[in-house]
Design a protein around this nucleic acid. Structure first.
Length: 467
RNA sequence: GGCGAGGUGGCCAAGUGGUAAGGCAGAGGUCUGCAAAACCUCCAUCGCGGGUUCGAUUCCCGCCCUCGCCUCCA
């Protein structure tokens, strides 16, 4: 196997991921709504998409990665108003935060990061086409809806029958619900409302703003074409968001929208769905406060298979820290590593089992198992290796690190600086130890420990680190 | 109710029709003044009950339990 085989949520089978056209794999990821800091559940999706891209590129295939920013919807509008700033300023702030977190997690930047607000004309154009073709209609209030029963294939991704959607028991409070011809129909253009404030745009159907589902269809079309290779997002987006994207795009463009659907399952925390009310919703900053690095978070987020809900716990973060330390130790023993990704899987050399596991539906868990087994094996063999073998190992290991997006370059000591008094005590202890004053030495070590610091001896000297 | 996922050692988590990767934790050992680190060794028969099979954790049936989606959601 020398190319990625990935589970396709639509056909429900593992299928090859190869560019349908040219030499570049084109893929779209539903990005964040920028109204607050993204939590680690959001980042599980983005981390897995990142691993996906890294693995594809490691086989020598180029990619075009598009990930949008949702910068206009009910939440962004409402919260920007509550914050008393313009929608643009509000979303710009959270976009910056998202970029900062993404960088900390070592996510590759998408080649294009389009935003909904920047693509209003494209969205209007699609709506016009949909109306022309009889797939959409304008309601009395000026909103435009997609006519679900005009598209026979509706439900082909989620396999939900239209009947099941329309019989939803949910109370419809929103007044514009009454404008729809059918409860299954979804909004393409939302007529301007009082509470939208200055956040509206002109359109042939009156003032308003685009519906959420449409932005992705419009941005896909503009940046990847009417038909492209892979579309990805969290599992919750499968319905209705992706189903609706298919409907809009295929009806508008008259061609197949996406070849391969890649959905990432949700992250659970302590066995339950993440929610603010349960107090188990973490951001990168929350975890940093607890002393965990973004790399540890990244490790946990890809340690389980993406098609399976993953149970996140603080213990698993601690375990990740230890695991990363082992890898870091191995890296130091190997010596300087070459840079850059693999240009083909041959570059993985002795570490080929790792990439093979990844090519098998991104089996990161199996890949880590293989990686640790190889690391253990090499630790024994390093002293006996000739230069060529050592270089092959270095190259292979570097390729693994790239594919998984690990840097292993964050020294433990940067977590926090050692206070002067602790440093002095540690120094005094070392001196006592040199004088074989074991009593004084141990006494000082205990005292340091009581302050929340740990002193450890090495061959050359000692280190001080927080507990 | 409809659709879907899953129950593997103390925790996280792969995997396979022929007696179960890896990480963490734990136990013992080497090393060390002691400890830490490192290294070595040890530690599960896979929710329950049937069936198919020479053989099932892996296939089939039933049951129990957990979780997700069906409404904004990564």
């Amino acid at each position: 196997m020398n190319c990625l085989h990935l589970y396709d949520s639509q056909t429900r089978e593992n299928r090859k991921v190869v560019p349908a056209r040219g030499d570049t794999l084109r893929f779209y990821c539903c990005g964040p709504t920028v109204y607050g800091p993204a939590h680690i559940g959001n980042f599980r999706t983005f981390v897995m998409q990142d691993v996906f891209r890294r693995v594809v590129e490691s086989t020598g295939i180029k990619t075009k990665h598009v990930r949008n920013l949702t910068d206009v919807d009910d939440k962004t509008i409402r919260q920007s108003q509550e914050a008393g700033v313009s929608l643009t300023d509000f979303t710009a702030g959270w976009t910056e935060k998202f970029h900062k977190d993404s960088e900390a997690l070592n996510l590759l930047s998408p080649h294009v990061e389009p935003s909904a607000v920047e693509h209003i004309p494209e969205q209007i154009e699609m709506i016009a086409t949909l109306i022309e073709k009889g797939h959409a209609y304008r309601a009395d209030d000026g909103s435009v809806y997609f006519k679900v029963d005009s598209f026979d294939d509706y439900g082909k991704l989620s396999r939900l029958k239209e009947r099941e959607i329309t019989t939803s028991e949910t109370e419809r409070e929103d007044s514009d619900e009454y404008e729809r011809e059918s409860a299954a129909d979804f909004v393409l253009w939302k007529a301007r409302k009082e509470e939208d404030g200055p956040n509206y745009w002109e359109s042939p159907w009156g003032q308003g703003r685009p519906g959420w589902h449409l932005e992705c269809s419009a941005m896909c079309k503009k940046h990847l074409g009417e038909s492209f290779d892979v579309h990805s997002g969290g599992e919750d987006l499968l319905f209705p968001h992706h189903e609706n994207e298919i409907a809009q795009s295929e009806c508008c463009n008259g061609t197949s929208f996406v070849d391969h659907w890649f959905h990432i399952s949700h992250l659970m925390v302590d066995g339950a769905k993440m929610s603010k009310s349960l107090g188990n919703l973490y951001t990168i900053d929350d975890l940093a406060e607890k002393g965990f690095t973004p790399e540890e978070v990244r490790y946990v987020l890809f340690s389980g298979s993406y098609g399976q809900q993953l149970n996140f716990t603080l213990d698993s973060l601690k375990a990740a820290g230890k695991a990363l330390e082992r890898l870091r130790d191995f890296k130091e023993k190997l010596g300087a590593l070459p840079d850059g990704p693999a240009s083909s899987i041959d570059d993985f050399g002795p570490f080929k089992p790792v990439i093979e596991a990844l090519l098998n539906d991104l089996n990161t868990s199996d890949a880590l198992g293989k990686l640790f087994s190889l690391v253990k094996q090499f630790l024994k063999e390093i002293p006996n290796l000739d230069t060529d073998s050592l270089n092959e190992a270095r190259r292979g290991f570097a390729c693994c690190l790239y594919a998984l997006g690990l840097r292993l370059d964050i020294p433990k000591s940067t977590k926090s600086a050692v206070p002067d008094d602790i440093a002095d005590m540690a120094k005094e202890r070392w001196e006592a130890k040199q004088n074989k004053d074991w009593g004084r030495s141990d006494e000082l070590r205990d005292a340091i420990l009581a302050q929340g610091w740990q002193v450890k001896d090495t061959k050359e000297g000692y280190t001080v680190s927080p507990l």
